[in-house]
Design a protein around this nucleic acid. Sequence first.
RNA 1: GGGCGGAUAGCUCAGGAGGGAGAGCGCCGGCCUUACAAGCCGGAGGUCACAGGUUCAAAUCCUGUUCCGCCUACCA
Length: 886
Amino acid sequence: MTEGWEKVYDPKRVEDKWYRFWVEKGYFRAEVDSPKEPFSIVIPPPNITGSLHMGHALNNTLQDILVRYKRMKGYNCLWMPGTDHAGIATQNVVERELAKEGLDRFQLGRERFVKRIWEWKEKYGGVIINQLKKLGSSCDWSRERFTMDEGLSRAVREVFVRLYEEGLIYRGDYIINWCPRCRTALSDLEVDHHEVSAHLYHLRYPLEEGGYIVVVTTRPETMMGDTAVAVNPHDRRYRDLIGKYVILPVVKRRIPIIADDYVDPEFGSGALKITPAHDPYDFEIGKRHDLDVVKVIDEQGRMTAEAGPYEGLDRFQCREQIVEDFQRDGTILKIEDYRHNVGHCYRCKTMVEPFLSKQWFVKTKPLAEPAIKAVEEGRTRIIPSMWQRTYFEWMHNIRDWCISRQIWWGHRIPAWYCEDCKEVTVARDRPDRCSHCGSVKLWQETDVLDTWFSSALWPFSTMGWPNETTELKLFYPTSVLVTGFDILFFWVARMMMMGLKFMGEVPFRDVYIHALVRDMEGQKMSKTRGNVIDPLVMIERYGTDAFRFSLAAFAAQGRDIRLSEERIEGYRNFANKIWNAARFSWMNLQDYQDDRKEIDLAACSTPDKWILARLNRTIAEVTRALEEYRFNEGAQTLYHFIWHELCDWYLELIKPYLYQGSGGRRATTQKTLVYVLDKTLKLLHPYMPFITEEIWQRLPHNGDSIMVANYPEVRSDLVDEEAVKEMERIKDVITGVRNIRGEMGVAPLTYVDVILVADDEKIASSLKEHLRFIQDLARARQIRIAVKGERPRAAATALADGVEVFVPLQGLVEDPQMEHRRLTKELRKLLDELEITQKKLANESFLKKAPAEIINKEREKLQEFSSLKEKLERRLDIFRELAGGG
RNA sequence: GGGCGGAUAGCUCAGGAGGGAGAGCGCCGGCCUUACAAGCCGGAGGUCACAGGUUCAAAUCCUGUUCCGCCUACCA
């Protein structure tokens, strides 16, 4: 009888099946020759080293919801998938692998090492893609891209050359962030600052003419690189010393005392040691004062020959050693505890070293301006809008972007150096001769580009740029970018700059910034904290649909998500609820015949009309929510409609019609049921793709797949407000009786009698018409209906709109206290509300200034409350009488 | 130092273009009522952080305070 309809929904049996089906049917594919309006999203490409974490899961769930929704809405959808080569991260992974074999990349050499990474990529790089599929992502996999593809690499070279030719890429000596472990430069963004415990060392630097000056530093190991001591020009203490010399301890170098406004006289001793090679601001000061630059730390974080006796020591060992030595010889006057922020490599957590070296930079200001303007003018919207501020803040203070990396995995910079004239030739392809002297002795730059350089081109490079492709014409600018705020600067801002520069148009119309997923304590999930919840485990445990729905339900705008497994469990139950509602429907649709006709509202029962009205409200709400990226509101609306309206009420109400309704009534009910289920499943499909497809296919339906069916539209012609009001009254009566039963301890199986006293004939006849529902759902046997008739004395009371509900109960005469207490409680609540309303209406300025609509509403409330109050008090009198013995 | 966000039921959080406080989970009471015990019915529980202000009306708007969180920054 219920073949294949187990009592408990089993996601495992259906998910892979439908995913394969969709792929085989080609539903995920975008069309290049379609008249349909385009809708496009490029995926934030996950790193090839990555495996699916909560961030990916949320990010891709939201994208998939949007794409599935738009696809059903009739758009020609392109969801462009792909992966990122993740330069440093990937190189690190493969280096670790080598280390296990006792090798390092230098032993292998560049070529073999890069080959080794490609091999690794072929083997493991697709892991995350399969995980995305597991999540149900409906990307156009036939277009999958990789940032080191031939096509994308060509785009990278093209952009590099053009920027270079325009003078927007330059090469020069600057202080950059250097990771001594990765042995590469990092951009400012790739440095994580966090507070560490350290010390402030007060060092005594002897003056040439005798005496000394005290400088304060956190990094005594850099002192051999000092080339000046700076003081504030207005600092009286040192005014006389300006222009004098200090003899640097250890290396005995003679260095000047200079004056610079940068020095804060309030801090420390007011004298600052200047190490131009190892501090970004010292470097600036050095330039201003034309100071020497002495490097004392090398690219591996070890002391150089300039460090004299400390040569060869690691920078931290050197600090220990020098502190020990200086304590012994009295150079250190004082050591204070000190907490300050220090930069760390975002990939390997090593403390970064400000390091002077020759690097390639992008001049960002000219690129940032149009990107700022585009957002100001609303050509790109950032949602929620609070992130706009952050975007502007960063864009206005943008600094040049260091794009060269001293690693081997990545796009090698297309610049060639001439051995003869030492000049640089930048070209799309390897040049035959030096563009300056014509020499053929050329060697290519060994540095590669920052990974984010290629991802900045992603929205157009994936569509075939620099060729003028149909894809670009159709799908650029993309409709929306969905991403986390953590890469707003890294990625979004740079895509804006590059998109505007090379496409002359913004890369996306909307940017939807979603929250970060945290654990239940609000901590960022991380492997080191051990608080990671693995999405794949959640999928395994609760099913993809429940998991996706949870993420969407959590995704309120502008707030972080604290994921709790209990909530996921709750939505697993929701999936099961839907399954069982479908199961029930299926059982009652065995003889259903699709007459292919429109719903005839006139032929519908009141519950039918009610659910149709509620359905339409739901369609409107969910559609609005999705259009506004309010995923959680859509989820909430669906949850409430399906569980608390469709299941709790409608399915219960129609049981009598389905079980023993006469032919016509049963058929109409079936028709409405099929209609409502069909629309509901479609509404839900973007959130829960698998279970909706499974059920939809099992129930009467038209079409091959729910994922290419039309998304429901509001049908106001199917909304009958009168019927809704009528139904709500019946529901209130039922709830009233249930409440009495519950409160008075009537056993669930016991039938009660009910007396309904209606305010007027119309209400009475409506009640009469729907008697059956009250009998069934309130478990009432006899129901008497009267208009303003005599109220029974020994009966419990409930009130609904236009009707008083009485349930005569044995024992009420003997123990009237119970009902008295119940009514008193009701009355107390009512009186509070009544008082508020009365006060408002007694207030003259309210009557004068409030809109008529509100005043009317208050008046209606007053009427309603007064009438209820009267009724309640009348009942209370009776029970006071009974309690008091007359 | 600058910027941003949060503070609502025991817990996790919605809501908020100002007009009768919501959900899930948890809790209490009762039910295996033939779709579902991953369920059904009923119930309790909130001075919407604190102090001012605007308004006829503030959880919602404004100002300040406190406490949390995040981003950003060259005070050695």
